[in-house]
Amino acid sequence: MTDNSTRLDHVVLWVRDPAAAAAFYEDAVGLEPLMVAEYAAGKASFPSVRVNEETILDLAPLPLAEYMNMVPGGTESAGHPVNHVCLSFPEDEFDALHARLEERSVSVSGFSYDASGARGPAKRSFYFRDPDGNVFEARHYE
């Protein structure tokens, strides 16, 4: 991949409580929280969590939807269904994520095997929901 290739920068998730969502993604999923203190202090519109060095998930509070007027219909985007977001992990982190979710009584699906993805067939994958109902797939390749 070259430095000029197209990459995923961020995904915005609508959440009821951004600080609680950030805590879930930190504690259960193992992602680094960003701007939580600034959000709590009213200095940022929402916090985020870092997926990797290039990609973050923004955790937008539902009332922010009224300001999403950059395109027609944008204000109605809160709660708009997205099928799922898929995160790929190294195998050991995948297993650790599965264990953390189960420890926290987060419902997880059974494992799927060889599901096709951006890097070909994944060895294993499973699905879970965050506290706001957003569906995630976790997977690992060889």
Score class of each variant (00 low, 15 high):
Asn4Met: 03
Asn4Val: 03
Ser5Thr: 05
Ser5Pro: 07
Ser5Gly: 09
Thr6Gln: 11
Arg7Tyr: 01
Arg7Cys: 02
Arg7Val: 00
Leu8Cys: 12
Leu8Asp: 01
Leu8Phe: 08
Leu8Gly: 02
His10Gly: 11
His10Trp: 12
His10Ala: 09
His10Asp: 13
His10Met: 08
Val12Ala: 15
Val12Thr: 15
Leu13Glu: 07
Leu13Thr: 07
Val15Tyr: 05
Val15Glu: 05
Arg16Thr: 11
Arg16Leu: 13
Asp17Val: 00
Pro18Cys: 03
Pro18Val: 03
Pro18Asn: 07
Ala19Asn: 04
Ala19Thr: 13
Ala19Tyr: 00
Ala19Leu: 06
Ala20Tyr: 04
Ala20Asn: 12
Ala21Glu: 06
Ala21Val: 06
Ala22Pro: 04
Ala22Thr: 11
Ala23Trp: 02
Ala23Val: 03
Phe24Tyr: 08
Phe24Gly: 01
Tyr25Phe: 14
Tyr25His: 10
Asp27Tyr: 04
Ala28His: 03
Ala28Thr: 08
Val29Phe: 02
Val29Trp: 01
Val29Glu: 05
Gly30Phe: 01
Gly30Arg: 04
Gly30Gln: 05
Gly30Ala: 08
Leu31Glu: 03
Leu31His: 05
Leu31Ala: 04
Leu31Phe: 06
Glu32Trp: 00
Glu32Gly: 02
Pro33Glu: 12
Leu34Cys: 09
Leu34Ala: 07
Leu34Ser: 02
Leu34Gln: 14
Leu34Ile: 11
Met35Asp: 11
Val36Cys: 05
Val36Trp: 02
Ala37Asp: 15
Glu38Arg: 12
Glu38Asp: 15
Glu38Gln: 15
Tyr39Met: 09
Tyr39Val: 09
Tyr39Glu: 12
Tyr39Asn: 10
Ala40Pro: 01
Ala40Val: 10
Ala41Leu: 09
Ala41Lys: 13
Ala41Thr: 05
Ala41Ser: 13
Gly42Thr: 05
Gly42Arg: 13
Lys43Ser: 10
Lys43Met: 12
Lys43Ile: 00
Ser45Cys: 03
Ser45Asp: 15
Ser45Trp: 02
Phe46Gln: 14
Phe46Met: 15
Pro47Asp: 05
Pro47Gly: 10
Pro47Val: 03
Ser48Gly: 08
Ser48Val: 01
Ser48Asp: 10
Val49Pro: 09
Val51Asn: 00
Val51Pro: 01
Val51Glu: 01
Val51Met: 02
Val51Ser: 03
Val51Ile: 13
Asn52Gln: 07
Asn52Arg: 07
Glu54Ile: 00
Thr55Trp: 01
Ile56Gly: 03
Ile56Met: 11
Ile56Asp: 08
Ile56His: 06
Ile56Tyr: 05
Ile56Phe: 08
Leu57Phe: 08
Asp58Pro: 00
Asp58Gly: 12
Asp58Phe: 10
Leu59Glu: 06
Leu59Val: 04
Leu59Ser: 04
Ala60Lys: 04
Ala60Met: 13
Ala60Glu: 13
Pro61Arg: 07
Pro61Gln: 10
Leu62Lys: 14
Leu62Pro: 00
Pro63His: 12
Pro63Ser: 09
Pro63Thr: 06
Pro63Leu: 06
